[in-house]
Design a protein around this nucleic acid. Structure first.
Lengths: 206, 206
DNA sequence: TCCCGGCTAGGACGGTCGTCCTAGAATTGC
DNA sequence: GCAATTCTAGGACGACCGTCCTAGCCGGGA
């Protein structure tokens, strides 16, 4: 019973598939290429996954878990909700190299699955929903309950627009310009609450 | 010599391919499905096009021509450069049904071709460049030469972000909100030049 | 009327894909 | 050391893909 070996092999498959789906797209990534990447026989795949869709589901679940951990980390590291939103805004800077090469992992996957009419589209869209809900929560904590979701969607739209064009044009200066613009925009909504932080630890619970 | 019949058949193929590439993606659209759509034999394709890539090139060229005509029409109908930019901003409203169903035709195609490593990526990216240059020209006419390209890219990023999220969430209210926000933003850059229009017909030539 | 060239239909071809099957290697519990 | 289980390798399969080939349809010019 070497369950550990199987677990790591399975993990390696998911990691390789994740990377390849991102770089080449889901449809364009064949079992052969994943197998080659993991140094595994092609036929051996079906011991760990019962279909290609199954691998996709595992990849989406892994991404979702990663994103959740990232959001939790931000919450631990940034006491100020505005600082957390700034973290999100700066994703496009932090990951600029990969974004310029392959776009946004969430946006491009969702778009592809939609065109394929793939049943996992809902799961992939859940990654957007994750960010949407989290950003909305931050804006709510900043005191903008009424517009929280609209503001969250605006931030998401920013990130998708920047990612798509940075990908198309490979323009790094553009990323920095738009991020700066977004920070300026955010400061209009963040100022009041940034001052509020020291004395309203209780409000976060409400 | 029924060259006319061939021309219309060719046009029908390009139109069907355009529609199917948009809805299902390039890779996921087979010759069989295009043939079925046009009511043509599968093998007959290669009289009109020598490969699938050839059809793609024709589709991109057709889109480019359509876009050019659209921009020329806007220039004829809108004397004010700000009005022309507003026309662009409102594309996402005008085409909201299609965008919510299938995303932006330019953005999704460019992204897909990039993942495929397809040689026609450059041509597809030219559609973005077309808008970028045209928008930049409008901002220049508004008197913002120095930042014209940056402003053009910002407008493009808006449209891509809105299209991607409207596609992912199917949220029409979101589209209207973001368009309104964008109009407000534009008015900050348009006001001065809107007044300037009557007396600076010469500047457009400079 | 016949012929010729533009145009079409249908099938054959090699290749790749996702899937499945099976024999056997490796590892564990007894 | 044996047996059972976990894991792997490699190939076979049917389906679909883009491509190509060829026989024949059709209409206009001689």
């Amino acid at each position: 019973m070497e369950a550990l070996g199987a677990a790591t092999t399975r993990t390696h498959i998911v990691e390789a598939a994740d990377r390849l789906f991102y770089r080449q797209g889901y449809q364009h990534t064949s079992f052969a290429s994943i197998a080659e990447d993991v140094h595994i026989s092609r036929g051996n795949f079906y011991y760990h996954f019962k279909s290609k869709d199954d691998i996709l589901a595992a990849v989406i679940a892994a991404r979702r878990d990663d994103l959740r951990r990232m959001l939790e980390r931000w919450e631990a590291e940034e006491a100020d909700p505005a600082g957390r939103i700034r973290r999100f805004i700066e994703i496009v800077v932090t990951n600029r190299a990969e974004i310029m090469s392959h776009g946004c992992p969430v946006g491009t996957l969702t778009t592809e699955l939609a065109k394929l009419g793939h049943p996992a589209l809902g799961e992939a869209g859940g990654l957007f929903t994750l960010f949407r809900g989290w950003l909305g929560e931050q804006f709510t904590q900043l005191g903008h309950q009424a517009q929280a979701d609209a503001l969250a969607m605006h931030v998401l739209a920013f990130s998708q627009g920047v990612a798509t064009l940075a990908h198309a044009f490979g323009d790094e200066e553009f990323i920095h310009r738009e991020v700066q613009r977004m920070h300026d925009w955010l400061s209009r909504y963040a100022r009041a609450a940034t001052r509020a932080v020291p004395w309203d630890g209780a409000r976060a619970d409400a």
